[in-house]
Design a protein around this nucleic acid. Structure first.
Length: 199
DNA sequence: CTACCGATATTCT
DNA sequence: GAATATCGGTAGA
């Protein structure tokens, strides 16, 4: 119940609360260092923008569940659903630091340095062995994928989301300031920023 | 470090 | 047919 309460607010306010939280699955635990918020019918960048489909249905469900999707023909990305049931939302888990199960994570990401094990949304899913089968599963203790909030991280930054052509002005990407495991900023093809990338 | 490119499923136009 | 909430490889500075 505690987790649902913490995730009940507006997604752009809840998202920073995920920084420093611990996500565990299949023997690996990651400390989240970077997330992005997506919400509602007025957010063109969100999968829920054009209404409910088979893929995004979980975004419209109750909070504290996992929304997994398949993209670019080969990658799985994971979100935590927040807000209120009936209004689509999701917080994309973009990056984290492996704090437990290091050897397992390495074996799933052969050739990667430790820093890059979960540096990126699809990499994070591979390090944790999160697959599409986990779409819609609960995140409470005792469930296969567990999310535990840590102490709130005060020193975080925000900026435009990665890889979107629509609504780049919404600074709904949040990351732990200065953390080396935060993923590199890759703007969408054709998007030019007015100035240097945010720090 | 940055820049480009190919792989490739699902969704949307 | 085109775009996409991406990654890993290679090339070059």
């Amino acid at each position: 119940m505690e987790l649902e309460e913490a995730l009940a607010g507006p997604v752009e306010q809840v998202a920073p609360r995920l920084l420093g939280a611990f996500l565990s699955h299949a023997g690996v635990t990651v400390r989240l260092t970077e997330v992005e918020a997506y919400a509602g019918a007025d957010d063109p960048g969100s999968h829920g923008y054009r209404g409910r489909t088979a893929r995004n249905a979980v975004m419209f469900g109750p909070p504290a569940r996992l929304y997994c999707y398949f993209t670019y023909g080969m990658h799985v990305c994971a979100n935590v659903v927040a807000g209120t049931e009936g209004i689509s939302s999701g917080m994309l888990l973009r990056a984290g630091e492996v704090v437990d199960g290091l050897d397992l994570a390495r074996s799933r990401r052969l050739g990667s340095t430790d820093r890059d094990l979960a540096r990126g949304p699809a990499r994070l899913c591979r390090a944790l062995d999160i697959s599409l089968d986990m779409n819609g599963t609960d995140l409470r203790p005792g469930d296969p994928v567990r999310l535990e909030l840590g102490a709130p991280v005060d020193d975080y930054s925000s900026g435009p989301r990665v890889g979107l052509r629509g609504a780049p002005e919404r600074p709904w990407r949040f990351w732990v300031t200065g953390d080396p495991t935060v993923s590199v900023y890759r703007p969408a093809k054709g998007v030019v920023l007015p100035s240097a990338p945010p720090i």
